[in-house]
């Protein structure tokens, strides 16, 4: 129900939605922030309900994503400030936290943040041992020793080359 107050028609723009995480906490978010997520925008277009339940995003992660969305929905902030917020946002975060963030931004389709987080993850993964990556992603090594050797051999024949731009 839309209530009228002294601001009149402006209230329509200031509508809020409630987003509930998988552990049950609820967050009040302005609609202008929520629609920066393509998935939330679609949900809001399809139903009247102002309560959205996200069954696969936890409290901590959701709070971070909402902080991001609210900052980016703030028209008072310049693009430069938003960019430096983005950098600040991912810096110093544990790899584990980034992993949940990248999944959440993928689910919610917040493309910009998804890219920023993926970049940060890649930066951390660079020069890390294969064993480290397996541990962090909880992945079992499903290679036989022979298969692993074969991959190393194949990579010696064909490799990725990024020097093309200079040509």
């Amino acid at each position: 129900m839309v209530t009228t107050d002294e601001k009149g028609p402006l209230t329509a723009k200031k509508k809020s939605v409630i987003i509930r995480s998988c552990d049950g906490d609820e967050f009040l978010v302005s609609e202008s922030a929520a629609v920066l997520s393509t998935s939330l925008k679609k949900i809001l277009e399809e139903k009247e309900d102002r309560l959205i339940h996200l069954s696969d995003i936890d409290n901590k992660t959701l709070a971070m994503v909402i902080a991001y969305l609210s900052t980016h929905a703030d028209d008072g902030l310049s693009d430069d400030l938003k960019r430096s917020f983005d950098q600040e946002f991912v810096s110093g975060k544990e790899f584990d936290v980034l992993k949940y963030l990248v999944l959440a931004t993928d689910t919610l389709q917040v493309t910009c943040l998804c890219y920023t987080v993926a970049k940060k993850m890649a930066d951390i993964m660079k020069n890390k041992l294969v064993e480290w990556v397996r541990r962090e992603f909880d992945i079992q090594n499903d290679y036989t020793p022979e298969a692993e050797a074969e991959i190393r051999r194949l990579d010696a024949w064909a490799w990725d080359d990024r020097q093309l731009e200079d040509d």
């Binding site: 990248v102 999944l103 993928d106 998804c114 890219y115 993926a118 970049k119 993850m121 890649a122 930066d123 993964m125 660079k126 020069n127 890390k128 041992l129 294969v130 990556v133 397996r134 992603f137 992945i139 079992q140 090594n141 499903d142 290679y143 298969a147 692993e148 991959i151 190393r152 990579d155 490799w159 990725d160 080359d161 990024r162």
Partner: peptide, 25 residues
Amino acid sequence: DLLGLILDKFDDPNDRKSFSQVCKD
């Protein structure tokens, strides 16, 4: 797609090599 997104940020062929050694997938 997400793995690909991370992978595309690697510039060094050696990083991509490590990436493919993690598992078959």
